[in-house]
Nucleic acid binder design. Structure first.
Lengths: 225, 225
DNA sequence: TTTTGGCAAGAGCAGTGCTCTCTTTTGTGG
DNA sequence: CCACAAAAGAGAGCACTGCTCTTGCCAAAA
C-alpha cells in the first residue's frame, strides 16, 4: 500500500470518528450541533476539525448524506410480503421504525432545513433511495394489474410526472407515479407529525394510527378517484 | 384610565413591537433568531428585551402562538364552496397559500422542534384551530350523507378516536374523524415537502400537484377502504 | 538526508444567550 | 406638588459559538 493511501486511510478514519461523535452529540443535544463540543470530546482543538470539514455546514451535510443512506438501506432491505398493500406497509413501517430510532437524524433530513443551507448535489442520490423503493413496488403492482392507472394527467404537471415515471419506474403510468409520490409525502408527514409532537395528548396508539393512514395511502395509490 | 393600565398598554405595545421586529428577522434570516440583533434594530440594549421576554425561547413561543393564530384565522375564513370536496380543497389551498407567504413561520410550527423546547399549554388552543375547521367540514359532510363511515375501529385507538370525535366533531363516526386527521397530516406533509425543498428539481407545477394530492385526501375521507 | 506538505494547537475576532448591577424614568399616594 | 417605589433601560461581564490566522511539529516524499 502506498504512502499516499496510508495518509488517506488515516484521514478517512479520523473523518469517520468525527462523524460518529457528532452523531452522538446530535442524538443527545439535538440539532444545534457544536463543532467545538465535538472537538472537545475527541480531545483535539476545534481548529483541527476544520482540517476535515470546511465548516459546520459541511459536517451537517455529511451527516445528512449518511442519514439518507441509512434510511435508504433500511427501506430497501425491508420490502417483504406478497401483495402490493403488504409490501407498501412493510416499507412504511420500516421507515417509521428507523425514524423512531433516529429522531434527530430524521429531523435533519425531513425537518425544517437550516437557514441558508443549500443541499449539495451529493445529497440527491442518497435522498431518493426510499422513493425509488416505493416506485419499484408500485411499478410491480402496476405490471401485475394490482393498481389501476386512472385518469391521465395533462399539462405541465403531466409532462413532469411522465419524466419522473420514466426515471423511477419505467413503463408505469405517470398518474400512478403521482399518487405514489403523494403517498410517500403522506408517509413522511405521518412520521414527522408523530416525531414532532403533533399527536401529543391526542393519540397514543401511534403504530395503529400510522398503519391506518398507510392503508389509506396504499388504497389511494391502487384505486384512483 | 388608571395608571396601571397605562403602564400595561405601553408594555403591550412594546411587546408587540419586539414581536414585529423578531418576525421580520425571522423572515429574512431564518430560524436562528438573534435576540441581540432584534434589540439592535429596536435601538435598545439586549438586556432590556429581557424585561419583556424571559428568554429567547419565550419569544419564540410567542411567535409560535401568533403563527398558529394567523394560520387558524386564515383557514377559518377560507371555507367556501358547497360540496365536501370543494370545501376541503378551499381550506387546503388557503393553508398552503399562507405557508408560502410565511415559510419561516410555517417551519416554526410544523418543522422540527427546537431541541429541548417544550410547547407550553398556551399553544394547544391556537394549534388546533385548523384541524377544528376540517373537523367541522367533515362533520357536515357526514351529516349530509356525503361521507361514508366505513368499518369501525376497535381497541385503544378506537377509544382515543371516539374521544377526539366527541371533542372536535360530536356525532361524527370516529373512523371518519381518523381519516380526517390523516388527511390533515397529509396536507401538512405536502406543504412541508414543498417548502422544505423535497420537490426541488422534480416537480415545478406545485399547485397542481398539491391539488391532486388533496383531491386524493378528500376521497380517502369520504370513501372508506 | 533534506525538504515539503499535511496536521494540530493556540490565540484571537465577532457574534450569541443570559445575568448582574447601576441608573433613569415614571406613575402614584401622601 | 413632591417624595417614593416600581418598572424600565443601559452597560459590563461570563461562558459559549463558528471560524481564521499564525506557529510549530512530524512524518512522508524526493
Amino acid at each position: 500500500m502506498t504512502a499516499a493511501s496510508i495518509r488517506a486511510r488515516v484521514r478517512a478514519e479520523m473523518t469517520d470518528e468525527i462523524k460518529a461523535v457528532a452523531r452522538r452529540h446530535l442524538a443527545t443535544d439535538g440539532a444545534n450541533l457544536s463543532l467545538r463540543a465535538v472537538a472537545r470530546d475527541l480531545g483535539m482543538a476545534s481548529s483541527a476539525v476544520y482540517r476535515y470539514f470546511a465548516s459546520r455546514d459541511e459536517l451537517l451535510t455529511a451527516m445528512i448524506i449518511d442519514a439518507y443512506d441509512a434510511l435508504g438501506a433500511t427501506a430497501e432491505a425491508s420490502v417483504s410480503g406478497s401483495g402490493f398493500t403488504d409490501r407498501f406497509l412493510s416499507v412504511g413501517h420500516s421507515v417509521r421504525d428507523w425514524a423512531l430510532a433516529h429522531p434527530h437524524e430524521w429531523a435533519l433530513i425531513y425537518g425544517s432545513p437550516v437557514p441558508g443551507y443549500q443541499a449539495p448535489r451529493d445529497t440527491v442520490a442518497p435522498a431518493i433511495r426510499v422513493i425509488l423503493v416505493i416506485g419499484r413496488i408500485v411499478g410491480d403492482a402496476s405490471a401485475a394489474g394490482e393498481a389501476a392507472a386512472g385518469e391521465p394527467i395533462t399539462g405541465k404537471l403531466g409532462d413532469e410526472l411522465a419524466y419522473v415515471a420514466e426515471q423511477a419506474a419505467p413503463g408505469t403510468p405517470p398518474q400512478l407515479v403521482a399518487r405514489a409520490i403523494g403517498a410517500w409525502i403522506h408517509l413522511c408527514g405521518a412520521v414527522s407529525a408523530e416525531l414532532f409532537g403533533q399527536l401529543n395528548n391526542t393519540i397514543d396508539a401511534r403504530r395503529e394510527f400510522f398503519e391506518l393512514q398507510m392503508r389509506g395511502a396504499a388504497a389511494t395509490i391502487s384505486r384512483p378517484v
